[in-house]
Structure formats: structure tokens, C-alpha cells
């Protein structure tokens, strides 16, 4: 960004809005918005409490389990749908429905099925993340250059070789894109799940803070979650850029 011919670093946007937040907070214009510095102080205090650590652990665990499930179901399903036309015809419509459906509406049903515990959160995370992974994996597999497969076969590749040495590697850029979008959805899933169940993890904390109008803690937790979602997606995005060079090189 350039203002008056000077280069403005990207960080400036963050600093600018933090400053605006601070001013609005200090002026006590809106009761929901405490000064930014107070939020930071609350953040520093919050991360030291046992309750927070326990909630974080639980949230991470649900997130990791759900995401792991989504990956181990989504990628094989996407590969299957990319390779077998019957599977695509049978499942394609449903995957497309679920990928754009407001899945939050299903969480109460999951709650009835799996109870008010961590299992519900894990299933919610999986349900949020899995569809986009299936869809992108399928797209990647379908776009693998057929002559690469012929090449491998002509040099004596077995069926396993075709999958492990050609298909999965050739589809990697799309699969990673699916994983990145899946992670963003999984963060939504873990928060929405915990909020609706509201007695575990960050859901419990959010409930506690908002019910008692502890806005400083509330915002601290929100900032933390946003930062985590961005960081996780950025990490996969970085891996994506590492393999991007060959996405364009495919004939």
C-alpha cells in the first residue's frame, strides 16, 4: 500500500484498527467494546488460568480428531469418486448439497445422536470439513493428465504404483486446497459445536463470558480463535505454494 508516495507496511492496517478500537473503547461509546489494551491484558491473564488451558486442550483435541476423521474419510472418498464413475453418480449430488448446506442446523441432531459430549463436537468438526475435501480431491484426481497414467503403465506400474506414485502426487495441489478450506470450516465447526453444546471447551468459556458480560475476556478469546484459524490456513497455504509450481505445468 502507498499513501502520499510512501510505502505503508501491511502491519499498518492492524495497528490502525487496533488504535481505532482503543479510542472507541476509551471513549466508552459502546459498552460491548472495552479498550483494546484491556482486552490484551485480559488475554495475558486468561491464558494463565487452568480453566483456559483445560478448554484449549479439549478444543484442540476435538479439532484434531474431527479434522483427522475428515481427512481419512474425505481423501479416499474423493479419490474413489474421481476414479469410479458409478461412485461419482451415486454420491456427487449429496457431496455438493452438503458442501453448501448450512450444517449448523444439523448440530442439534448430532447432539441427540451422540450426546452432550466431545463426540458431538468431533462429529460436527468432521461434518463441517469433510465435504470440501472430498470435492477438491475428486477434482484433482479427475484432472490428472491421462498420459501420465499411460506413461506409468507403459513402464510396468502396478495399480498401487499408479495411486501412490502418480494420482495422489499429481492431485496434491487440489487436495491441499481442499484441506486448507477444510481447516477453516473445521474451526467454525468446533466453535459452533461447542457453543451449541455449551458445556465444554471454549463453548463453556464463551457462554460464561457473555452471560456475565465479561467483554474483555470474550474479545480475548475471539481474537485468539481468529488468529488460530488464520494461522492454520496460512500454514497449509504455505505448503500449497510449495507445490503450486507444478499445478500450472500439467498438460
Amino acid at each position: 500500500m502507498r499513501v502520499f508516495g510512501r510505502d505503508i507496511p501491511i502491519m499498518f492496517a492492524l495497528v490502525f484498527w487496533a488504535l481505532a478500537w482503543e479510542i472507541v473503547g476509551r471513549a466508552e461509546l459502546v459498552f460491548l467494546v472495552p479498550p483494546f489494551t484491556h482486552v490484551l491484558a485480559a488475554l495475558a491473564e486468561m491464558v494463565q488460568t487452568g480453566k483456559f488451558r483445560h478448554a484449549t486442550l479439549l478444543t484442540f483435541e476435538s479439532f484434531a480428531l474431527g479434522m483427522g476423521l475428515a481427512l481419512s474419510l474425505g481423501i479416499p472418498l474423493g479419490v474413489l469418486m474421481g476414479r469410479v464413475e458409478a461412485a461419482e453418480k451415486l454420491l456427487g449430488t449429496w457431496v455438493n448439497v452438503f458442501v453448501s448446506a448450512p450444517l449448523t442446523a444439523l448440530v442439534p441432531v448430532i447432539m441427540i445422536l451422540f450426546g452432550l459430549g466431545q463426540t458431538t463436537i468431533v462429529v460436527t468438526v468432521m461434518l463441517f470439513a469433510v465435504w470440501i475435501i472430498v470435492l477438491d480431491t475428486q477434482a484433482g484426481i479427475k484432472h490428472v493428465n491421462p498420459s501420465l497414467l499411460e506413461m506409468a503403465r507403459s513402464f510396468g506400474a502396478s495399480r498401487l504404483d499408479l495411486y501412490a506414485r502418480i494420482l495422489l502426487l499429481a492431485a496434491l495441489p487440489e487436495i491441499l486446497a481442499g484441506v486448507r478450506l477444510g481447516i477453516i470450516r473445521a474451526v467454525k465447526g468446533v466453535v459452533i459445536g461447542q457453543l451449541l453444546v455449551s458445556i465444554i471447551g471454549y463453548g463453556e468459556l464463551f457462554e460464561l463470558y457473555s452471560r456475565n458480560f465479561l467483554m474483555e475476556q470474550f474479545w480475548a478469546l475471539t481474537i485468539l480463535l481468529f488468529a488460530f484459524a488464520m494461522l492454520a490456513a496460512e500454514l497449509v497455504g504455505w505448503a500449497e505454494r510449495k507445490v503450486e509450481f507444478y499445478a500450472g505445468a500439467r498438460g
Binding site: 498420459s147 501420465l148 499411460e150 506413461m151 499429481a170
Partner: peptide, 16 residues
């Protein structure tokens, strides 16, 4: 079979 090898029109190189 191993006694035959193929050279492809579009090269068919693994970009990775």
C-alpha cells in the same frame, strides 16, 4: 512389457 518403451507426444513428465 519391459522389452518395449514408449515416448509420449506430450512428454508425460512428472512435474513434481
Amino acid at each position: 512389457g519391459p522389452e518395449r518403451a514408449f515416448v509420449f507426444q506430450d512428454f508425460a513428465l512428472m512435474p513434481w
